[in-house]
Design a protein around this nucleic acid. Structure first.
Lengths: 155, 155
DNA sequence: CCATCAGATGACGTATACGTCAACAGAGAG
DNA sequence: CTCTCTGTTGACGTATACGTCATCTGATGG
């Protein structure tokens, strides 16, 4: 393989992966990254970059930095990676269960909100008000003439 | 109707609605409740209780205290409650859209996690390890004999 | 009259993942 | 030599919804 001895600076890495340098340094402070230094300046290898990618993926999937650190710590120590895989699968499983709960809550909220919406719309209709006018600006004190209601395409 | 002039103290209300007195006082500090006082002691009427119920429902539905305060403030000022209904419907609509986004994210995470799980399980199999053993305690250093794998029913 | 207790109040803590700011240092340009 | 970048560090701020003290006060029971 071609000698991939490419180095990165914080800002380079930050821009490429769309995080702030502050965040990257923060991960280091939390022990998730340990780049070399040239004097005081941080120097990142493609290995560090890979770790950072793992960190970001973990975050996307809803893991905390502390959990991500667990994985990464195992990654270093456990060369066979067996323990890491065990932990990973356990955590993934837990996360899936948590997401399942979240989904139930979310759907319950959606139902309740839709009920409320129906009631509100009915009430407004009984008051002789066009419910869709709600999505206009706040209506000026004197009520507007009347509006065609064919403006229901948002997106 | 029978004169429902019942009063409540913070702790009574707290116990009945399963929140802490601290929380109730916090809502007051945020302007969501304004109970009378008898000297320095807070006195809550059934009206205050109703407001508190609205607050808790709003929280369940994912609104922030600031948003809930908006509703309640309108409720007081706007006797016809028309503006309140307008705002409510708008907020409900927004909340529903936000939840829709959340659901997409959540489902994307679930898919990705399931992919990861599959890969992990495959890898463990290739290493000759029973993937389900992961959900035991951390395996003792010396590996256990072998386990029947018919324990896959986890409600 | 004193002990006790509910209730009030203010200050500070908590958790998470950073953002913002100030002060400072080394390195290259002119 | 001075200016200007980058980069570093530490300290503090942010948002949310309270929890946890410690201290104080008024009312009540015995």
């Amino acid at each position: 393989m071609p000698d991939q001895q490419r180095f990165y600076t914080v800002t380079e890495l930050a821009e490429e992966l769309e995080v702030t340098p502050r965040a990257i340094r923060f991960y280091e402070a939390k022990g998730l990254l340990t780049p070399e230094r040239a004097g005081a300046t941080r120097v990142y290898t493609h290995r560090d970059r890979a770790r950072l990618l793992l960190i970001l993926r973990g975050k996307r999937l809803g893991f905390s930095l502390a959990e991500i650190k667990e994985f990464l710590d195992l990654y270093v120590v456990d060369t066979s990676q067996t323990e890491q895989l065990r932990l990973l699968r356990k955590k993934v499983h837990e996360r899936l269960e948590a997401l399942e709960v979240q989904r139930r809550d979310l759907e319950a909220s959606v139902e309740e909100l839709k009920d409320i919406e129906r009631v509100v719309v009915d009430t407004l209709k009984n008051k002789g008000i066009d419910p869709d006018a709600i999505f206009d600006e706040v209506p000026t004190k004197g009520r507007r003439p009347r509006r065609a209601k064919a403006a229901a395409n948002e997106d």
